[in-house]
């Protein structure tokens, strides 16, 4: 846990020192190019890697009643029989984390005696669902908001988004809710790994590192907007230069900006080699993205081995006499009368 924190701090420090020492273009230009390339190529490679292995069997996890007799109501989404059902299931899975939400449906709570254990309900899965959802959506919105820097003129929808995001009208520059929620959600996700024994037990560096990294990105981002107020216009010109492959001088931009960029680049570099590939992987999941129709439509296994089994002929050869004795019909009568 601390290793990954130190690693993130180290990356930040290097970027800070480097850009302050005049290598700003390295962290502001070269690194992002490299990171974007690695991200795109890496993700494509990972998806190709998955896609190269076939799905030999149709193994959806059925979460409800199958399509069956007319008078029995099918759970069309949880146990889809058609592509439309699969689409709905995947949509709910990807957009609303339906499987995580399932956890919350537990009821029938008994009257609890005195002791309910310290910190009990806090870590329940409902919170996980809630914060996971908040995290992912806020991250998306924050990402979209950044299009202010990537497009000239600033697209109309970005402005709308910002208006919506700053609806609370606190402070100047106006406080964006998504940034705050993102930070809170990340702290929750990190907190449960640190404080919940069960989670601590299963967590690896691979789990802490992205969380610290994202925390670093969010914190530097927030600093850049509210505290170490960066010269937005200059940053925009710089970023537009980068996105249009004609980088301009980074002169005058605060080093913190490069720390932010370096951390984002690290995230992109790390992404295709880590569990973060779940972003693409969820669409490939064979227990979710297939219809439960394998009795209706034959699913083909490309490597289906040849049939090899103890055939009836072999079976009858082995037991012909006793079968005849028992009066069972035979393909071939025994040589001598059964006796």
């Amino acid at each position: 846990m601390f290793v990954s924190l130190l690693l993130v701090l180290l990356i930040g420090a290097i970027a800070w020192a480097g850009s302050a020492a005049g290598f700003a273009s390295l962290f502001g230009v070269a690194l992002p190019y490299l990171a974007a390339a690695v991200f795109v190529v890496g993700m494509i490679r990972r998806m190709v890697y998955w896609a190269k292995s076939p799905v030999p069997f149709r193994i959806p996890t059925t979460g409800g009643q199958e399509q069956s007799l007319d008078f029995i109501r099918q759970a069309k989404i949880d146990c889809p029989g058609t592509q439309a059902g699969v689409f709905a299931r995947m949509f709910l899975e990807v957009c609303l984390f339906r499987s995580l939400f399932r956890n919350t449906e537990a009821d029938a709570r008994a009257g609890l005696p005195a002791n309910s254990g310290p910190g009990s309900v806090y870590y329940s899965s409902k919170w996980l669902w809630c914060f996971a959802l908040l995290f992912h959506y806020c991250f998306l919105l924050v990402f979209l908001r950044h299009f202010r820097f990537f497009a000239e003129p600033t697209p109309q929808w970005v402005t709308w988004l910002e208006t919506l995001d700053g609806l609370m009208q606190i402070g100047a520059p106006r406080f964006f809710m998504t940034g705050g929620i993102l930070l809170a959600a990340l702290l929750f996700l990190l907190g449960r790994r640190v404080f919940n024994g069960r989670l601590r037990c299963i967590s690896l560096v691979n789990d802490y590192f992205p969380l610290w990294l994202l925390l670093g990105i969010v914190c530097t981002g927030i600093c850049l907007r509210y505290f170490d107020k960066t010269e937005i216009a200059m940053v925009k010109i710089f970023i537009m230069g980068v996105t249009q492959f004609s980088p301009v001088s980074a002169e005058g931009i605060a080093p913190l900006f490069f720390v932010h960029v370096a951390l984002v680049s690290t995230l992109l570099l790390y992404f295709p080699f880590s569990k973060l590939t779940h972003m693409a992987g969820v669409f490939f999941s064979p227990t979710r993205n297939a219809a439960n129709d394998s009795r209706r439509v034959r699913h083909i296994n490309p490597w289906n081995p040849p049939k090899q089994y103890f055939t009836y002929a072999e079976y009858e050869d082995a037991y012909r006499d006793v079968m005849a004795e028992a009066g069972l019909p035979l393909e071939k009568e025994p040589d001598r009368p059964a006796g």
């Binding site: 709570r109 609890l112 919940n196 024994g197 069960r198």
Partner: peptide
Amino acid sequence: GLPGTAADP
């Protein structure tokens, strides 16, 4: 952390 994680019987 486990035994207290859920109060559900």
